[in-house]
Amino acid sequence: EHKIILYENPNFTGKKMEIIDDDVPSFHAHGYQEKVSSVRVQSGTWVGYQYPGYRGLQYLLEKGDYKDSSDFGAPHPQVQSVRR
């Protein structure tokens, strides 16, 4: 199983989107239009992308907690697509 939770604010606060065993080419299409400032990967390895359609900067997200976007190497809290 692959499970990831994306949070609007640092330290796992604010609006969140939970994804289980699915690739998401556009967070906006899924109704999530917030920034991504923290991430909790509960299982599996994911790649987050700066822009929709798996474009832009890529961020490797392995199991663990990323309490701020800088923890996974993002210069800005901008992640708009993700895949396993």
Rank of each mutant, 00 (worst) to 15 (best):
P10C: 05
S37Q: 12
S38T: 04
V39L: 12
S38W: 00
R40A: 08
K35S: 11
H76L: 13
Q42E: 14
K63R: 08
Q33A: 14
Q50D: 01
K67H: 09
K3S: 11
Y7P: 02
L57C: 15
I5L: 02
I20M: 14
F27T: 09
D22F: 07
F12V: 05
K35R: 11
E8M: 06
Y49D: 15
G44T: 01
D21H: 03
I5Y: 15
Q42C: 10
D65H: 09
E62Y: 13
V47H: 09
H30R: 15
D65R: 03
Q78L: 13
Q78E: 08
D23Y: 03
D22C: 08
A74E: 15
E1R: 00
H76R: 09
E1D: 02
I19Q: 10
F27C: 09
I19C: 03
R40Y: 14
E18H: 04
E62I: 10
F12Y: 09
A74V: 09
L61C: 01
W46E: 00
Y66Q: 02
D22S: 11
S37E: 11
K63S: 09
P52C: 05
S26Y: 14
Y66W: 10
M17F: 08
S37H: 13
V39Q: 02
P25V: 09
D68A: 13
P77I: 10
K3E: 08
L60C: 13
E62L: 07
F27I: 11
S43K: 07
Y49E: 00
D71V: 10
Q58Y: 08
Y54I: 00
F12R: 12
S43Y: 05
E34L: 14
H2W: 10
I19R: 11
P77M: 06
G31N: 09
P77L: 10
K67R: 07
I20Y: 15
Y51K: 06
Q78H: 05
F12S: 07
R55G: 07
N11V: 06
T45H: 09
V79N: 02
P77K: 10
L60D: 12
V41S: 03
L6C: 12
E34A: 13
F27S: 04
H30Q: 13
L6T: 05
D21C: 00
G31P: 10
F12K: 01
G73S: 02
E1C: 15
R55I: 03
D22V: 05
K35A: 13
V36T: 13
R55N: 05
I5P: 03
D23A: 06
E34K: 08
R84C: 05
Y54G: 03
G48V: 15
T45F: 08
Y49R: 00
E62K: 10
K35Y: 02
D22W: 04
S38M: 09
A29G: 12
V47W: 07
S70D: 07
G48I: 04
H2V: 00
G31K: 06
Y54L: 03
A29E: 13
R84K: 04
P52Y: 00
S37G: 14
E62M: 04
H28Q: 10
F27R: 01
P77H: 06
K63Y: 09
Q50N: 02
W46P: 03
Q33E: 12
A74L: 05
I20A: 02
M17Y: 08
E8C: 07
L60P: 06
K35G: 13
H76Q: 12
S26Q: 06
H2L: 02
Y66K: 07
N9D: 06
Q42G: 11
K67C: 07
Y49W: 14
M17T: 14
M17W: 08
V79W: 03
Q58C: 09
M17K: 04
V79A: 01
K16W: 04
Q58S: 14
K63C: 10
Q50E: 08
S69R: 09
G53D: 10
S37F: 05
P52K: 07
L57Y: 12
S69A: 13
T45L: 06
H76I: 09
H30K: 14
R55C: 07
T45M: 06
H28L: 14
R40T: 10
S38E: 03
Y7D: 00
S69H: 15
W46I: 02
R84D: 02
I20H: 10
G53R: 15
K15T: 14
D71M: 14
Y59H: 00
I5W: 13
F12I: 06
L57V: 11
Q42Y: 13
S37P: 09
K15A: 08
K16E: 07
R55D: 06
Y7W: 10
Y49M: 15
L57G: 12
Y66T: 04
L60V: 10
A74Y: 01
V41P: 03
V47L: 09
P10V: 03
R84L: 09
R55V: 04
Y49A: 06
M17G: 00
G44F: 03
P52V: 04
E18G: 03
G64P: 01
P77F: 14
V36I: 15
G53W: 06
Y32C: 11
A74R: 07
G44S: 03
Q58E: 15
E34I: 14
V41L: 01
H28S: 13
R55F: 03
P25Y: 04
A74N: 12
L6G: 04
Y66R: 08
K15W: 02
M17E: 15
V39H: 08
G48R: 05
H28N: 15
S43G: 11
T45N: 07
D22I: 07
S69M: 15
P10N: 12
A29P: 05
D22P: 01
E18Q: 06
Y59F: 08
Y32K: 14
S43T: 09
M17Q: 05
Y7L: 00
D68S: 13
S43V: 10
K15S: 09
K35L: 07
E8T: 08
E18P: 06
V24P: 00
N9Y: 05
A74K: 12
H28G: 14
K16H: 08
V36A: 11
H30W: 11
T13S: 02
F27P: 06
E1M: 06
H76A: 12
I19P: 05
